[in-house]
């Protein structure tokens, strides 16, 4: 049973929509859902710099736009650099009194490809320079926009169009890149994982990210029914399974301090998460055992980090 405060969602979550109906996301897209939640918390006084990708392409075919906050798209790999510029530009214009002295939050958004692969350098630069902005990685674990090609954020064993499972391949052969650790290595004030299957957890983290006194990084697991080959209605369920199996732990690193924000122990077996997904359909028990082992190790590692002061 959900706690009382959560029961009446419209009473505790802002009603205003910043990514409006009419956007062309696939049915059951949990990525646009994650942004729908996040943008409600960032609110009106926000500027978005978005990387090329699903969210950009579903929202802005000229001459219409699904966004109601100021929004800019420049290219694939540079959302963090564009956001740096916006932040710096507003800072000087405010200092010179050319724009009203009001707090405007800058949010850069990229997919896993735009973050962990092609945009990693620009992101690292922006975090290191300590611009006050939030970077959101909406991670659907492959290049979905171009037709489900693997990225460095694609999980081990997933079959994609460029890491197909075949007679001599299990699909993706490498382990998912740990973007959270990479972001945290920049010693920024706030880093967190979240998933729209846990909207209140996500909302709380967006609030923290917005308040951080420096750059913040949010990593949203964004279930993609199209790319993961699951029924659209199961998008929320698979996000929940990712968390309950320990595949995607929900935690935050605030001023260097780790905290698990939702502890799903005892963990469900990873098989529960893997089995219904078309992208993992080919995995054998042996593969699943390997994934189980590494998942446990990762979960224990996070737990250990979280128990440290």
């Amino acid at each position: 049973m959900l706690p009382n405060i959560e029961i009446y969602a419209p009473n505790v979550v802002p009603k205003e929509e910043f990514v409006v109906s009419g956007h062309r996301a696939c049915q059951g897209c949990a990525e646009v859902l994650a942004l729908r939640h996040a943008l409600k918390i960032f609110g009106k006084d926000t500027i978005i710099a978005m990387a090329t990708g699903c969210m950009e392409i579903i929202s802005t075919p000229l001459p219409t736009t699904a966004w109601t906050q100021p929004w800019i798209h420049v290219a694939f790999e540079n959302a963090a650099a564009v956001a740096s510029g916006i932040e710096a530009g507003l800072r000087i214009l405010r200092k010179k009194g050319k724009i009203p002295d009001k707090d405007i939050h800058i949010v850069a958004i990229g997919g896993d490809g735009g973050t962990a692969d092609i945009g990693l350098q620009a992101l690292s630069g922006a975090l290191e320079r300590y611009h006050k902005f939030t970077y959101i990685c909406v991670d659907n674990e492959a290049y979905m926009n171009t037709g489900i090609q693997r990225s460095s954020s694609t999980p081990y064993g997933a079959s994609t169009t460029t890491s197909p499972a075949g007679k001599v391949s299990i699909g993706q052969q490498t382990w998912k890149k740990d973007m959270v650790k990479i972001a945290a290595a920049h010693n920024i004030p706030y880093v967190a994982t979240a998933c729209p299957s846990y909207p209140f957890d996500l909302i709380e983290k967006v609030k923290q990210a917005k308040m951080a006194n420096g750059p913040s990084y949010l990593h949203f697991l964004s279930v993609c029914p199209t790319g993961w080959r699951i029924p659209s209605e199961a998008a929320i369920k698979y996000g929940r399974l990712a968390v309950e199996t320990g595949i995607f732990p929900l935690y935050e690193i605030k001023d260097g301090k780790y905290r698990i924000t939702y502890n799903p122990e005892p963990l469900r077996p990873v098989k529960d998460y893997l089995k219904g997904q078309g992208r993992f359909r080919h995995l054998t028990d042996e593969h699943i055992e390997y994934i189980q082992k590494r998942t446990n190790e990762h979960w224990e590692e996070i737990k250990k980090l979280a128990s440290l002061k």
Binding site: G85, G89, Q121, G125
Partner: peptide, 28 residues
Amino acid sequence: LDAVYVTVESEHSAMSACIGTSAAGART
């Protein structure tokens, strides 16, 4: 010179950040 100087990590980000500052309304 009363300006912000963004010490970017590449020219690609230099031009990207310039787009950001200019789109914000600053002479870049």
